[in-house]
Amino acid sequence: MTLVDDALLEVLGSSAVTAARAATEVPDPLAPARPAGSTHAERALLARSVLRRAELSARRAPGATGEEKLLPVPEELSGLLPFGGLQRGTAVVVDGSTSLLLALLSEASRTGAWTAMVGFPRLGVLAAAEAGIDLGRVALVPSPGPDAAAAVAALLDGIDVVVVGPQAALTDADRRRLTSRARERGNLLVAAQPWAGAHVVLTVRAGTWSGMDQGAGYLRRRRLTVERSGRAGAARSIERQVELPLRAHAVKNPRQVEKTPPGLRLVG
């Protein structure tokens, strides 16, 4: 099951769409068996197609040098990162808050970075939009199954930011290989699961809610205590207070997002 935009369907072609839909249909006991390995081939085709679409849109080779090595983050979160931004070619862990993860990626997405999210079957598209994510530049692979490592590796070949969710089944060896691939390709790997050797680890230690009538009414904002650890520039542990949602990306009228979908279509 993969969520893609309308323009990407032209790249996938009718055969790939048919194959993806067939993968989710109830099997007919009288129908001939499908060839072995077809599921892997279909997912690999979808991943490569997403990659090709992103490269054509960006009109540049994967990776970056110079000033482009840092992907921007909202000013309120820059103090959590050793260089004030998300460094390409590294692995970053965000543990304990999907809202913090989306907020961290919002500025890079808003300024044109492509994002792929693998293994987030319950990710809310409206929540992503409210956080400031540009849904027109997002590819979702909610349930990669046993091919998670292959899907992430293929996406790292050209997608600016690849996010690995809790439902992406990976071994420690897979994580090491994917970290090396992100470094070689110059793209960012973000994990919402334990990731040995991550360059930056952001861990939410505590959180409190606030809202109308000291929180007794609607809960509108959440203050998080975030601890940063990691390697190299992030080796010195620090702790910061972060309030979400970020005011710069707050959606004044959430219904407007619902009425103007970004042209995404569910395949499968």
Rank of each mutant, 00 (worst) to 15 (best):
P262M: 06
G145N: 10
R240T: 02
M1P: 14
L202P: 00
R223A: 05
S38C: 14
R205S: 08
T203N: 10
P74I: 05
A61C: 14
L46E: 00
L9C: 11
A41N: 13
A64L: 01
L178D: 10
P262W: 00
D172V: 15
L101T: 01
G13Q: 05
A36L: 15
L30E: 11
D95V: 04
P32G: 00
A169L: 11
R181A: 10
V200Q: 00
L123I: 08
I159H: 05
E42A: 13
L80N: 03
A150K: 00
A64S: 12
V190F: 09
R240D: 03
R52D: 03
V190L: 03
A47P: 02
P262D: 00
N253R: 15
W114A: 09
T203S: 10
G145K: 10
L12V: 09
R34G: 14
S38T: 15
T179V: 13
R185K: 14
G145H: 04
E107C: 09
G124H: 01
R110N: 02
G84M: 00
S229I: 08
G165N: 06
G13W: 00
K69R: 15
Q167G: 12
A19P: 01
T179I: 10
A182P: 01
A173K: 11
S180H: 15
A41D: 15
V161I: 13
R43I: 04
V17N: 05
G268N: 09
N187E: 10
Y218Q: 15
R59T: 11
L46V: 11
D174Q: 07
S106G: 11
A139R: 06
G119D: 05
